[in-house]
């Protein structure tokens, strides 16, 4: 589809405005998830000539803006592929940041008439969707894979060789922190519902414990990921969930000295059984946000740990119901 409007080269800059930053903030908080897009097509950064480099990216504002702000002070072209507002890595996995779209976009923008050379610089994380040799065959353009992070581009461009460090994905504290808002937003409504139910069944402590278990899974877990012992996300989650549930269990156990001992034990066990699997399940879900869990590995983990989560959670809930009924019926 060669849309007429796309044969124009739009101007852009390396400067991020407050409006851009606000847009990034909203994107991080999952507000209007698919709405953070730039128009697909060709952009001129600075004052490029027919010999200036061409950089390819996704039409997601965070991807596009990371690229242009990394190129401060440089002249070049940016070719934004139509990934429907999805970042390079996820779009490459889906194939929308892919060979076909790239070849089509080269044609649609008339890139061949804009630059004299035949080289495109792609982000390395776009590689799962793009077959470099096919692009060359179909469009005449040679694909060069730049570094994983746009921030490394200035260093990369000096030699057009990426160091091994530039080629590796990292999952730094900062990388993990920016993912938390989305997780929290998604968990918000279910958490509220669960907390309200918990409040009516077991009171304030129960409601607080439920909120703590979920927050541990969606916020604390991403932060502590590398420091939690064990390898599997599920077991890491169980451990973290256990630690978070412990104070609540102790509150129930120690806070009601006049209640029968066995009832206090059951009360404490409810927390220790029902809550850690919730945290563990949310931790397992976080595998989708990382760049180092393989499908084979996650599948194995699901088979190994989801039944355990279901059983401990189920037993915990049954105990909680029994405990609440005894308390209500026994008037204790």
């Amino acid at each position: 589809m060669a849309e007429a409007a796309e044969s124009i080269v739009r101007p852009t800059t390396s400067t991020l405005t407050w409006a851009d930053r606000w847009d990034h903030f909203l994107a991080r908080w999952a507000v209007n998830r698919r709405g953070h897009r730039v128009a697909p097509g060709l952009y001129a950064l600075g004052n490029p000539t027919a010999d200036s480099p061409v950089f390819v990216t996704a039409n997601y504002t965070l991807s596009f803006d990371a690229l242009r702000s990394a190129l401060t002070g440089m002249d070049g072209y940016i070719l934004a592929l139509d990934t429907q507002g999805i970042n390079v890595w996820c779009a490459a996995g889906k194939g929308t940041f892919g060979t076909d779209e790239l070849v089509r976009r080269i044609e649609a923008t008339g890139l061949k008439n804009v630059v004299r050379h035949r080289t495109l610089i792609l982000p390395q994380l776009g590689a799962p969707g793009v077959a470099a040799h096919q692009v060359r065959k179909q469009s005449g353009f040679k694909v060069e894979y730049g570094p994983v992070r746009a921030a490394d581009l200035p260093a990369y461009l000096k030699t057009h060789e990426a160091t091994p460090a530039m080629r590796r994905v990292r999952f730094t504290l900062r990388d993990r922190l920016v993912l938390i808002p989305v997780e929290v937003v998604v968990a918000l409504l279910p958490t509220l519902i669960a907390a309200v139910i918990g409040f009516f069944v077991g009171g304030l402590v129960t409601a607080a414990a439920i909120i703590a278990a979920i927050l541990a899974g969606v916020a604390l877990f991403p932060i502590l990921l590398p420091w939690l012992p064990t390898h599997a996300f599920s077991t890491k989650g169980f451990i973290l969930g256990g630690i978070v549930a412990l104070p609540f269990a102790l509150t129930v156990f120690l806070g009601n000295p006049n209640t029968a001992l066995w009832l206090r034990v059951v009360g404490a066990l409810t927390y220790l059984l029902a809550l850690p699997p919730v945290t563990a399940f949310l931790a397992l879900n976080f595998t989708g946000s990382t760049t180092f869990t393989s499908r084979t590995g996650v599948r194995r983990e699901m088979f190994a740990y989801i039944p355990v989560m279901a059983w401990t959670f189920g037993i915990g809930i049954v105990l909680a119901i029994a405990h609440a009924s005894i308390r209500i019926l026994g008037g204790a």
Binding site: A92, A131, T287, G288, T291, S294, R295, V298
Partner: peptide
């Protein structure tokens, strides 16, 4: 360390690599 992203298989011009690629994401699965 392979996370089955498939980039190597897709880009190898000589078919020397095979990997059952897909997202390692529990929620999606």
């Amino acid at each position: 360390a392979c996370m089955e992203c498939g980039a190597c298989q897709v880009n190898c011009p000589f078919g020397a690599i095979q990997v059952d690629s897909g997202v390692g994401c529990a929620a999606a699965m």
